[in-house]
Amino acid sequence: MTLHHEIRGLDGKDAPTIVLSSGLGGSDAYWAPQIELLHLLFRVVTYDHRGTNRSGGRATGEIAAMANDVLEIAAKAGIDRFHFMGHALGGLIGLDLALRPASPVESLVLVNAWGWADPHSGRCFDTRITLLEKAGVEAFVRAQPLFLYPAVWMTENAERLEAEIAHGIAHFQGRDNVLTRIAALRAFDVEARLGEIAVPTLVVAARDDLLVPYTRSLALADAIPQAALALSDFGAHAVNITEPAWFNAAVGSFLTALGKGSAP
């Protein structure tokens, strides 16, 4: 079963294509602040991960299987080659794809991602799992913004945050899916293979990310041969949402420098 996906932006089978993959939440709506920019440069493919939102089925327990889902979407759309932007877990999917023989990936944008899960991130996930198991779905969802956003941003966006929490509770992907997806990202480890990635890569991170230490991004940028680093002092784990102007400028500069379009 092909996952729910949407294609927008440039038309034509020869149009440059970018696939966007979100993190643990799995929703294509995560990338809303980037669509206006990207649809001017690319045919943009967004999708809901297996077992989340509008995609049915059960979550898969390996990042490689999640990457296979992307290849299935691309094949159905007749896409042979694509650029890829992934946030956190989505970034791991991009790394898996980029490391495959005859990889279809032309470039990578990795947002607060990692080559292996830092023990600090493990503590954060253990806390979230305990909330889910002991306090229930509402407590789990209400705690999620603490790991995504800066405190001042949450204060300034309180109404938006409450709407987001209500939506997250109403459309919760399910206990088993969450646990399966967390286990997959914790098991992922390609640190020793990062030097094999042969495509231009932009590593994006925020120093104040509570969930994933920005040093994981520094390690990616150091190890991937054609990597550039965009590092913000502010923005936390969901920096593309909290600092969209900075993020879009960094990503837009990287992508247009590859000769794939003109800056809007």
Results as ranks from 00 to 15, higher is better:
101 P>Y: 05
98 A>H: 07
142 R>H: 05
168 G>T: 02
90 G>D: 04
149 Y>P: 06
165 I>P: 00
137 V>T: 10
112 N>W: 08
99 L>T: 01
143 A>F: 15
75 A>T: 12
98 A>F: 09
135 A>P: 00
137 V>P: 01
131 L>M: 11
165 I>H: 02
144 Q>M: 13
155 T>M: 15
132 L>D: 00
152 V>T: 13
161 L>G: 01
128 R>N: 06
114 W>A: 14
154 M>K: 10
167 H>V: 10
113 A>E: 04
87 H>V: 07
148 L>D: 12
81 R>P: 01
156 E>G: 10
91 G>Y: 06
73 I>G: 04
120 H>Y: 14
155 T>V: 13
160 R>Q: 15
78 G>D: 03
169 I>L: 05
122 G>Q: 09
112 N>R: 08
119 P>F: 08
156 E>A: 13
142 R>T: 01
131 L>W: 03
141 V>C: 02
116 W>Q: 15
131 L>K: 09
106 E>R: 15
172 F>H: 10
77 A>D: 13
98 A>V: 04
94 G>I: 00
154 M>L: 12
87 H>I: 07
101 P>F: 07
113 A>Y: 08
147 F>K: 08
130 T>D: 15
168 G>Q: 04
91 G>R: 01
124 C>A: 14
121 S>E: 12
155 T>L: 15
102 A>N: 15
87 H>E: 10
144 Q>S: 15
140 F>K: 01
88 A>T: 12
123 R>L: 15
72 E>W: 06
154 M>G: 02
136 G>N: 02
134 K>L: 13
96 D>M: 04
168 G>A: 05
162 E>W: 08
120 H>E: 11
172 F>V: 02
162 E>V: 07
126 D>I: 04
154 M>W: 03
172 F>L: 01
111 V>P: 03
171 H>E: 12
86 G>R: 01
73 I>R: 02
74 A>W: 10
159 E>V: 14
139 A>E: 09
99 L>E: 01
99 L>R: 01
96 D>S: 11
88 A>F: 11
80 D>H: 13
141 V>N: 00
174 G>A: 08
116 W>I: 14
130 T>S: 15
100 R>E: 00
71 L>S: 10
118 D>A: 13
107 S>C: 06
90 G>V: 01
96 D>T: 08
89 L>T: 05
127 T>K: 14
171 H>R: 13
143 A>V: 00
79 I>K: 04
98 A>W: 09
82 F>P: 02
113 A>T: 14
80 D>M: 09
132 L>I: 00
119 P>G: 05
91 G>L: 02
158 A>K: 10
138 E>R: 14
170 A>N: 09
93 I>Y: 05
90 G>Q: 03
151 A>M: 10
138 E>Y: 06
156 E>W: 03
166 A>K: 13
126 D>W: 07
111 V>F: 07
106 E>A: 14
141 V>E: 04
76 K>G: 12
103 S>H: 08
158 A>H: 09
115 G>I: 00
172 F>E: 03
129 I>S: 08
126 D>Y: 07
140 F>P: 00
140 F>D: 00
117 A>F: 09
84 F>A: 05
133 E>K: 15
